[in-house]
């Protein structure tokens, strides 16, 4: 089981689905950002799994996974800064109360 690509890819798919649910269903902006991190991790797991099982991708997949991690760190920095800036203005982290653009 640990020697087949399919099991890792299925695990990655399930983790991605959990992240999708969190992003769609949570009201808190920071919880949504955490769900995005879960989805990025799921994609990274798929990349690393391909790297471990496909001989021609062996080193490349790890390099790409490291780059994805750095981009995820940049995304988290900017995303959380935006959430804190909005919070300072609106006094709530709940996204369904950010109705100013709709009104």
């Amino acid at each position: 089981m640990s020697q087949s690509l399919d099991s890792y890819l299925a695990l990655s798919a399930l983790l991605f689905a959990v992240g999708t649910f969190g992003f769609l269903a949570r009201r808190n902006a920071i919880a949504m950002l955490m769900s995005i991190e879960l989805m990025l991790n799921a994609v990274n797991l798929a990349i690393v799994a391909f790297g471990a099982f496909v001989p021609s991708l062996r080193g490349d997949a790890s390099v790409i996974a490291l780059v994805v991690m750095a981009v995820a760190a940049a995304e988290a920095t900017v995303g959380l800064a935006i959430v804190i800036a909005i919070y300072r203005n609106r006094r709530t982290p709940l996204v369904d109360e950010y109705t100013q653009m709709r009104e």
Partner: peptide, 13 residues
């Protein structure tokens, strides 16, 4: 969202 996530997860898997 739960239905969508379950469908997405099973489909991908």
């Amino acid at each position: 969202a739960a239905i969508a996530a379950v469908v997405l997860g099973t489909l991908l898997a």
